[in-house]
Amino acid sequence: MKSFLFRLYLALMKLVARFTPMQDNKVVILNGAGRSGSNGYLFGKYLEKSHPEYEVTLVEPWPSSHLPLKTWREIGAAKFVLTTHQPFKVHAKQINIQFWHGIPLKRMGIMANNTTRKTDQRNAKLWQKNADIVCSSSDLYESLMSACCGIETNKYQKTGFPRLDALKSPAISKKQLLMDLFKVEDADAKIGIYMPTFRYEMEDSQIMRQVEQGNFLTLADFDIEQLNYNLKQKQQYLIVKLHPYEMRLFENLHSNFSNITFLNNDYLNQQDVDLYELLGNTDFLITDYSSIYFDYLTIDKPIIFLTNYLQQYEEKRGLLMGPYEDVVPGICVKTQQELLEALDKSDQFQQKRHYWLNLSNQVQADSNCENVVKLMKSIRG
């Protein structure tokens, strides 16, 4: 019922916005990716800094049923509507540029195990009707997206993703990051970041209960004191960046441990940065089935993969490539003990990372953002 009412609301607002005169230099960014590697947010910052000839409006959170009429008129006035999730535009004369928010590793849409045929068909129609241009990084990306969403090949443009530009030039120095998050100065520090996928969709109350109790790694042998001790011995510092849903499970997102800290959106908003604007200063990534690892290949740092719920996740939603432990370019671990051992090992996966980087990112440009601007200018007439 809520879904039907929201679609009705969107239809009414689109009708209102349709009567606003369109402006060729007007760009609206519908950002549904928050501050966690948002192509939309980062591209908007680039436009405001480097291309003042464009008038940019950032709409977030998106989608929302609480936008004022003024915002809907802004949407209606835009020549270009840029989206990070489902493609959207008010009328046919607008150009929707679809950024999306990650190279798909998990099955979604038509390919997913946990969606309905009716929903899949509705989403495929939205892509066919509203997506004019789909920004791409590679043939691999296009194959994966089309498998999931039924996107026609002529919609793709290999511009690269704006978020990858931010990895190359962090907005916050490593020294400042250490001081802000850990209150230390350590010239020899190694900063790691843990970013799991959306684990709630496994529909396992036991997993959520572990997270709520502080076991953010959801490992059977989890011991945060031992983890902190081992990190401290190796001058390693771990940033924990959970999915927004999981962050809400914690009453207090503050760690009492010297070498472990939680990163929430408050810090990112205070600094006016996206996560990717500090990610380049990290030295290793720990993840499970999050597609962030494709992006992390850009900075060529070690990656560790937690696979303790791999079988359950494959059954519930599914993965697009496999066998997973053979595909991923890093050590796979199932226990905290294995994780600690992995943190001690030398990097032996650089060649495999380079292989997957070349497959997933064929756009080797100085500025992916500028590639998108050039594309916009080429279709303005």
Rank of each mutant, 00 (worst) to 15 (best):
F88R: 00
F250K: 09
L47E: 00
L12Y: 11
N368W: 02
T298K: 10
G318W: 00
N123K: 12
D344T: 14
F294G: 07
V134P: 10
I29V: 14
K334N: 09
S36H: 15
M376Y: 02
R18W: 10
W127D: 03
V328I: 10
D366G: 08
T261V: 15
V27E: 02
W100G: 15
L144T: 06
P63N: 00
E201Q: 14
E55N: 06
F262P: 04
Y276I: 08
L320Y: 05
Y41K: 11
T84Q: 06
Q176T: 11
I97N: 06
T20P: 08
Q351T: 05
K155G: 04
Y313T: 01
V59C: 00
P323Y: 00
Q86W: 05
M1L: 12
P68K: 15
F284E: 05
D24P: 10
L69N: 12
Q351S: 12
I303T: 08
L339F: 02
G102H: 02
L126E: 06
L278W: 06
T116R: 03
Y200E: 15
W72N: 10
L140Q: 11
D180I: 07
N215K: 15
S64Q: 03
K70Y: 13
T197F: 03
R163K: 06
L275R: 11
T84H: 06
L319P: 00
L340A: 13
A33Y: 08
R18Q: 14
N96T: 11
A112P: 00
L339T: 09
F250D: 07
E203P: 01
E55P: 05
M195P: 09
Q351E: 09
G109P: 03
L177A: 14
L42F: 01
M145F: 12
L181H: 08
R107V: 01
E48K: 04
Y9T: 04
P170L: 03
F216M: 13
D288T: 08
T83R: 06
L181F: 09
L268W: 02
E314M: 00
R317D: 01
T261A: 13
T57E: 09
K2D: 05
K168Y: 09
I224S: 12
C148A: 10
Y276M: 06
H66D: 14
K174I: 03
M179E: 12
Q128V: 13
E251L: 12
T282V: 13
D120K: 07
S143H: 15
N361V: 08
V363K: 04
G318Q: 05
D347E: 10
Q235E: 11
K334D: 04
K89M: 00
F182K: 02
I379G: 11
Y46G: 00
Y229A: 13
E315K: 11
N361K: 08
M179R: 11
Q176G: 09
R199L: 15
F6A: 12
Y289R: 06
I331E: 09
Y237T: 10
M111W: 07
K70D: 14
N130R: 10
M108N: 12
I207Y: 13
P52D: 02
S258W: 02
L359E: 14
L15I: 12
M108R: 13
M22T: 14
V372G: 06
Q94V: 09
Y324E: 01
A124M: 13
F294C: 10
P87I: 03
I172V: 14
W356A: 07
Y46I: 01
